[in-house]
Design a protein around this nucleic acid. Structure first.
Lengths: 200, 200
DNA sequence: AAACACTGTGGATCAACGTTCCACTGCAGT
DNA sequence: ACTGCAGTGGAACGTTGATCCACAGTGTTT
């Protein structure tokens, strides 16, 4: 070894790529535009990440970390402070929605294959799993409180998550025929929670 | 006017593009490959459709028509023949899932922005709306039978649709941590229907 | 202090892509 | 028979992801 690579450079590249994704989307992002924005040569990206997919994967991974943080605490309000289990889930998913609608293109990168055959790596999928734990914990609370019926919390959390994701995807791609998406989103989740209720 | 354009040619191009989408996906599809497959010159595609997005839109439109047909009748079995309202919805969405999983790339084109900033046109969105009517009708039956509580059938149908779509998207992009996706899919829908139940 | 090893630069290059242009051909309508 | 447009074939342009190369800079080792 002769020289220690500066990971400050790596951060700059990922930050530039993130900004690019947020502004124009992953599909419109180019290696040259990222390099220019980060103030590095196009070659450096390949030296660091290998190819474009790997770079996008790094962007997605970082986004999942930010998502998890935002779910746990938004504007200083901890999700754990909400005691009512149902409202805890509702508020958590409301934050989830604000994240998605605030950064639609980033959300698209995380959950779609927006650019060619890009797929999230297993490592990034692990980070996504960490984010999901927030919802899993909320479900566990609901079960303990008897508001949700006994079942595998992970499986239940994913049912709720899927429903929320489905609504968001439709909203983001303008598919569907809804006046008030905000209301529709919450209605769908409340319907889900009602279906998961302990009563019979 | 001198010559009547053969829409047989148009059909050939759309058919070739559909096959291409099914096999390699919309992102990997190229104008040249479609032209070659259809046995026409690349130029003809532009003469007919304008650009690639318009061609993909035509493919999506056709796919929505096929989806609606398949929902209504699969292997000669009419959906309307199922009298039980709940099982009617379940079977309809099972067919929906088989369509999606049988043609994942086509499904991706219909509901994602898989290639750049491509969006379904308003006209194609109308066709999608027609497909949704199958589910709306099933919900109406459920309400009439008292199995589902009184509400706007269109709004309710979209809640169910969104939940189904969410599960499918996660399955298709390998996001989520589920053993048996088939079971998870049906569980999610049944949870939804339970939440929509007439009982208080 | 000197030599080394590696990172990053700058620029050229390649193949593939969507799209456009143009000259040419062939058929349908008057 | 003449005319006009649909479609062909091929070249071309600009942009993209990716690779290659010679060169400069800098931290580490000797």
């Amino acid at each position: 070894m002769a020289r220690t690579p500066s990971n400050e450079l790596e951060d700059r590249i990922v930050a530039a790529a993130s900004a690019e994704v947020v502004e124009v989307g992953a599909a419109a992002l180019t290696q040259r535009s990222v390099a220019k924005r980060a103030g590095v040569s196009p070659q450096s990206i390949y030296n660091r990440f290998g190819d474009q997919h790997a770079l996008l994967d790094a962007v997605a991974d970082r986004a999942f970390v930010e998502l998890a943080e935002r779910l746990r605490a938004e504007d200083g309000h901890l999700l754990d402070d909400i005691t009512d289990p149902v409202e805890n889930v509702i508020e958590g998913l409301a934050r989830y929605r604000r994240f998605a609608m605030g950064n639609p293109r980033l959300y698209g990168l995380m959950f779609d294959a927006q650019v060619g055959d890009f797929r999230i790596s297993d490592r990034t999928l692990g980070t996504a799993f960490d984010s999901l734990q927030v919802l899993v914990r909320a479900v566990e609370r609901g079960i303990e409180a008897g508001v949700l019926s006994e079942a595998d919390p992970l499986e239940v959390a994913q049912r709720i998550w899927a429903a929320a994701h489905g609504v968001l995807r439709f909203e983001l791609t303008d598919v569907g025929f809804v006046d008030d998406w905000d209301r529709h989103y919450e209605s769908t989740i409340r319907t889900m929670l009602r279906g998961l209720g302990a009563s019979a």
